[in-house]
Design a protein around this nucleic acid. Structure first.
Length: 156
DNA sequence: GCCAACGTTGGC
DNA sequence: GCCAACGTTGGC
């Protein structure tokens, strides 16, 4: 079981949106490091849903990976902002996974809250200028965030 | 292969 | 709105 953090701007797609649709392809990732993490995901892995570009930035809930990485169809759609003319089925560039909502945090955990948690001291998320939108978490980071958010540690 | 210019992310 | 961080692009 691996743990992850996935960022989304809530104005674009929020945790409440994920709860409403139940299941969603995590598409539009156009960064190689983030893509490589997507490809490491396994159904059953748990993740934190982070709301970026909002005031204050915060973790809103827990998600679960429900389908392993497969081709992100937006890379082949010329009408999409995520279209990539250099990608092809033979030389695939971008992947996505499907995720589902597990539970909303009773208390959203802000970036400031995370900085106060000793378990998060080494996380790139709490460092200035971090732009990675998909990153692995240690079990200690994951569980500490759940505690801070008011969820029991066993959400699986 | 280097690196300057540029673009994007995302906190503040 | 500003700007730090940093990935990408393209000239050479």
């Amino acid at each position: 079981m691996a743990y992850w953090l996935l960022k989304s701007e809530p104005d674009v797609f929020s945790f409440a949106d994920l709860q409403a649709v139940r299941r969603e392809p995590w598409n539009g990732i156009r960064n190689y490091q983030a893509r490589n993490f997507l490809r490491q995901m396994v159904p059953g892995d748990l993740g934190l849903f982070y709301h970026s570009n909002t005031q204050p930035p915060h973790i809103a809930g827990v998600l679960r990976v429900v389908r392993e990485a497969y081709p992100d169809d937006l890379q082949f759609d010329p009408a999409s902002e995520y279209y990539d003319p250099k990608s092809s089925a033979e030389a695939l560039r971008w992947s996505m996974v499907d995720v589902g909502a597990v539970a909303a945090f009773p208390q959203p955990v802000t970036l400031e809250d995370l900085r106060a948690l000793p378990e998060w001291a080494e996380s790139p998320l709490v460092r200035r200028g971090n732009r990675l939108s998909v990153m692995p978490l240690s079990e200690a980071e994951f569980q500490a965030a759940l505690r801070a958010g008011g969820l029991p540690e066993t959400t699986s």
